[in-house]
Amino acid sequence: MNQLRRAFLKNAGSVGAVAAAIATGLLNPVTVFAAAWNSLAFTTKDLPGALKNAGYDGAAESSDIMIKAPDIAENGAVVPVAATSNIPGTTSMAIFIDKNPAPMIADFQFMNGAEPYIATRVKMAKTSLVRVAVKAGGKNYIASREVKVTIGGCGG
């Protein structure tokens, strides 16, 4: 009897703890964002500044970042870009487009088994280098690929 009561109290205690954690937002399954939106980096108008404000400055050129994108994009409003990092320990990946009004496009953090790979579609104002920067093992790496744009997609 004593044993049962002990088990019951133990369970009740842990359920209470979980409920409290949910209430305080600790265990909320889908609404946890690691950081506030980096408005400084996303509104910086030059590439070196955007790289710096996003934490990707001083990146070494790397051939271990693969960028898949069309050589020529007929419509700059929708340009498919996919990137894979073969650098061990890659924790994040960001996309930059030199000639866009704001070069920083997106930043992705990988955790809990996510592979260092992202596919998406971006807007390009005009012909430009598309750059993919990566953080791995406390260092920054970057690769680039030119995409020619025949009709711009950034409200030009």
Binding site: F33, A34, A35, W37, N38, F42, A77, V78, V79, A82, I95, I97, N100, A102, M104, I105, A106, D107, F108, Q109, F110, M111, A114, E115, Y117, I118, A119, T120, R121, V122, K123, G153, C154
Partner: peptide, 17 residues
């Protein structure tokens, strides 16, 4: 995946991971 996007992601966004 924890991501931040700017206005340069195309309309009706697609992501693959």
């Amino acid at each position: 995946i924890d991501a931040q996007w700017g206005v340069g992601i195309a309309q009706n966004p697609f992501i693959g991971f």
